[in-house]
Design a protein around this nucleic acid. Structure first.
Ligand SMILES: [Mn+2]
Ligand SMILES: [Mn+2]
Ligand SMILES: [Mn+2]
Ligand SMILES: [Mn+2]
Lengths: 224, 224
DNA sequence: ACAAATTTTTAGATTTGTCTAAATTTTAAT
DNA sequence: ATTAAAATTTAGACAAATCTAAAAATTTGT
């Protein structure tokens, strides 16, 4: 007796946002936080919180906030899986650049067809990470967060590989492209400037200067 | 000074339906015809007709019906192009069967990204026809209706190739699959039964009996 | 031509998702 | 412990898309 609710696009977007704000665990997410993230008003969030609670996606405590139920988490992971698989598809199969995919994936993630996304997954060879280095949940909702750290937190002389970005804005991604910084690149910290926290690094053989702003938005997987 | 209106999913569905009902040419399409096709009520159609007229997609004459403007035709062709390209993609790249693609294409046709559909078109090698034999409009809205006729209208002894279906219901398509009738198959009319209008045909070498119901939903391109 | 049948439109209601402004609750500060 | 500030909810409104029921226009049949 599997209850299958129709989930609207708006509901899906709220569920996804709550998940990204940490609404897994049992921590309560504040109304204002959701409103700010979704560029909507707190009163709209309250209305939706009630509806999502009604449908079993969240636990809602008046004046306290919401947290996702197990069902809500499962739903969120399914949407995120679709979003990230579509992003891989756009980059791998249609030559989109990594700064163009998010907007389109925001639409594609709402397409309702289990077979479609399973086939896309298969076509792509069951990728584990999306173009920004974020992990792709499997069909049954499991995924591994990669062992990684921000470049800004790496110790002097340590080496590693670029595996992800924290800021996924088109502006940042284009900046990385312009400076030939890409996921998969090898990296070594040559020098750290105490004054402005900027770094002198070696990337794929070439030496490069990196501001703190950049270093604190690049994820590195340390060697061994 | 290109005016770019936001077109809602619902508006797109109305525009597409009006086109399919023959709303190109200057013929007026009746409110009831649209309502029936869309499984909605005439009063809803009237409301939408006003909105579509407001936005420049249709000419609307009270109590007479609607016809698409040039802009409306252009919009309809763009939606149909997307629908049919996605259907080809699902069949060619994801191994969907031709009876499964329509439902998903109904969703995908509303994805808004010019680059996406152009890249899909390119990936597929600019196909001219969809899995049901229907022509795919080009980016600039041109398309060729194929020279074809219903099997039921073919003369005795004439030969040809299966190029399309009139009834695109999953039930009919599955029936064709079961009987190994597929687009591209060669066909020759061996005998016509006056009594029930059934046909005796040769398809890809094998002899077959075909009811009038089937014959009047299969398009054939006659040889030479 | 004119009454009857059909089609279409209008009027008013409903649902979803949003907003503003006011009221309420919680949290922070003195 | 009060008061002030911040966060949250409620109340009431609105736009989009739909519906039902009633009114109006058109078409049809004799
Ligand atoms: Mn994204
Ligand atoms: Mn991503
Ligand atoms: Mn179709
Ligand atoms: Mn088709």
């Amino acid at each position: 007796m599997k209850k299958l609710f129709f989930v609207t696009r708006s509901e899906e977007n709220y569920i996804k946002t709550i998940f990204h704000l940490g609404g897994n665990s049992s921590s309560l997410i504040a109304t204002n936080a959701i409103a700010e993230q979704m560029e909507t008003k707190p009163s709209s969030v309250t209305d939706m919180a009630k509806k999502l609670a009604e449908k079993g996606f969240v636990n809602y405590k008046r004046y306290q906030g919401v947290s996702l139920t197990d069902f809500g988490i499962k739903t969120a992971l399914s949407i995120i899986r679709k979003h990230r698989l579509w992003e891989v598809f756009l980059v791998e199969k249609l030559d989109f650049s990594w700064d163009e995919v998010h907007e389109v994936a925001e639409q594609l993630e709402h397409i309702k067809s289990e077979k479609l996304i399973d086939k896309i997954d298969e076509l792509l060879g069951n990728p584990k990470y999306d173009p920004h280095g974020d992990p792709i949940p499997s069909k049954d909702g499991k995924f591994m967060e990669r062992d990684k750290q921000l470049l800004s937190e790496m110790t002097l002389k340590s080496e590693g590989v670029c595996v992800g970005v924290k800021d996924t804005s088109a502006a940042f991604l284009k900046f990385l492209d312009k400076n030939s910084i890409a996921l998969g690149n090898t990296i070594k910290v040559l020098e750290k400037e105490d004054f402005d926290l900027s770094l002198h690094i070696q990337m794929e053989g070439k030496e490069l200067h990196i501001s703190h702003q950049i270093a604190s938005n690049l994820y590195i997987k340390k060697n061994d």
